[in-house]
Design a protein around this nucleic acid. Structure first.
Lengths: 138, 138
DNA sequence: TCTTGAAGCTCTAGTGACTAGAGCAATTAT
DNA sequence: ATAATTGCTCTAGTCACTAGAGCTTCAAGA
């Protein structure tokens, strides 16, 4: 049996976050010790590791809830799990594209800043005057 | 004079967001009409456009507060504004790098999913077993 | 066995940047 | 004059945690 602190060290999920996941119903409420402290089994350790891994990959808590639900029905077709992952991939790609546009714009803004005072600072001017932007970044 | 709705249409910032910015002290509380409705000048329109533009570029509200503060002192050296923009650029680049790692991992996970049931679905297995990951993605 | 310090408990509230809704009042167009 | 739209304030919700107060329990050393 693991204490909540053991679980935290082994999975890298912080203690208050584990309690939060329990409140959200992502992990089941575990057994308690005589003194009312949480005691986890290996199975619960594995579920938390699963959650940690999925969060690292950017899945939303609701997605993870679905994935856990699915993993409990190994006989079902896996199209749904696949779809969740593919949607996540699409959303990650969209975020990358958006951030690259911002990168380009910020490079342009910062590289042009050779003014000595705020009055002719390109950063401030670029922000004040959208027309200075090379292209639309939103 | 512009109503809050005019301002919203001209800047693309939603009405409740304008009121939120006022509460946060990013925009000053404007004049009011006889009937207590907000009435904005052109100057306030421009400030809101500045804020919108900076938000589009991913600047945090606190950064924008600093940039506004700086733009009110055009005689000062602009190093501070430049630094804020450069830090933003660094943080955008870090986010891109992180998202690219996730993209790679998700591509691998989704492309391998040819199982018919959840039991042999690569998506679920990859999430359950971190060892299946090609490299560390966090 | 006693003590001490770390770790655990619950509960509330805060983060950032908005967003939604209720229940009104003012303005604008017909 | 009336109806539709827009505006007002206030509270609470979003997401995924994080922080803190004030208490109890546990584990290890003396």
């Amino acid at each position: 049996m693991f204490s909540i602190g053991d679980l935290s060290r082994r999975t890298g999920v912080k203690v208050p976050t584990i309690r939060y996941y329990e409140q959200m119903g992502l992990v089941a409420a575990p057994e308690r010790s005589e003194g009312n402290q949480r005691r986890y089994s290996r199975q619960e350790l594995e579920r938390l590791a699963f959650i940690r891994h999925a969060r690292d990959l950017g899945f939303a808590v609701e997605d993870i809830r679905s994935l856990i639900e699915l993993s409990g029905h190994p006989e079902q077709p896996c199209g749904h799990a696949d779809r969740i992952a593919e949607e996540q991939l699409i959303s990650v790609r969209e975020k990358i594209a958006q951030l690259k546009r911002l990168e380009t714009e910020l490079e342009r803004i910062t590289s042009c800043c050779d003014g000595k005072t705020v009055g002719d600072c390109y950063v401030i001017r670029a922000l004040s005057d959208h027309a200075l932007c090379a292209d639309e970044h939103i």
